[in-house]
């Protein structure tokens, strides 16, 4: 039963991820919290792990969540489910690509979806932020965490820092800050 739930949930996640990478996070967040597969805290951990390990975040998250909730079969089910919509749609669209690419209807729908995705990822930063930044003591915003989050934002946004290096430095900072 849990395999079926995992399959349907990650199929949905794969199907509604447009723009790749971080665009998937809001949906993954909502689905895993809805089913209670992971706590919000564990979800943030996975995003960190996914960023530090090779491969697309969606695939990493599917494998991890699947394994935690139903072992190796769970991880294979979730991973297959998250890539199946890609497989089907690439095979279908590659046949009608010329037509699809020049269609105004498709173009205008995407012109609406792209800013929606940006807003959703912003929303994920806010909701995840409210969990992650109260990690030390629930209900109290942890100042060092907020400072670290802002520094990371600035490093990546303004100075184009490499996310992996940023995460390694942040892990080291965590060792010093959190006693």
């Amino acid at each position: 039963m849990i395999l079926l739930e995992l399959f349907l949930s990650f199929f949905k996640i794969g199907l509604f991820t447009i723009g790749g990478g971080y665009a998937m996070l809001p949906l993954i967040q909502q689905e895993i919290i809805r089913y209670g597969w992971l706590s919000p805290q564990e979800f943030v951990d996975i995003v960190g792990i996914a960023e530090m390990t090779p491969g697309p975040i969606a695939v990493n998250a599917a494998t991890f969540v699947g394994f935690r909730s139903a072992g190796v079969w769970g991880s294979l089910t979730a991973t297959a489910a998250v890539v199946l919509p890609s497989f089907i749609s690439v095979l279908l669209v590659s046949k009608v690509w010329e037509h699809y690419q020049n269609s105004h209807v498709v173009g205008s729908i995407f012109a609406g979806i792209r800013p929606t995705v940006a807003g959703l990822v912003g929303g994920a930063a806010l909701t995840l932020g409210s969990t992650a930044l109260q990690a030390v003591q629930p209900g109290v915003i942890d100042i060092p965490s907020v400072v670290l989050a802002v520094v990371v934002f600035a490093a990546v946004h303004f100075f184009k820092a490499d996310p992996i290096k940023v995460l390694i430095v942040s892990a080291a900072a965590g060792l010093i800050i959190f006693k």
Binding site: Q41, V44, D45, V47, G48, E51, A125, L128, G129, A132, L133, A135, V136, D142, P144, S145, V146, L148, A149, V150, V151, V152, F153, A154, A155, V156, V166, L167, S170, A171, A172, A173, G174, L175, I177, F178
Partner: peptide, 9 residues
Amino acid sequence: GGIRAAVVG
């Protein structure tokens, strides 16, 4: 603890 804060950023 550090990684979580960084992920938010």
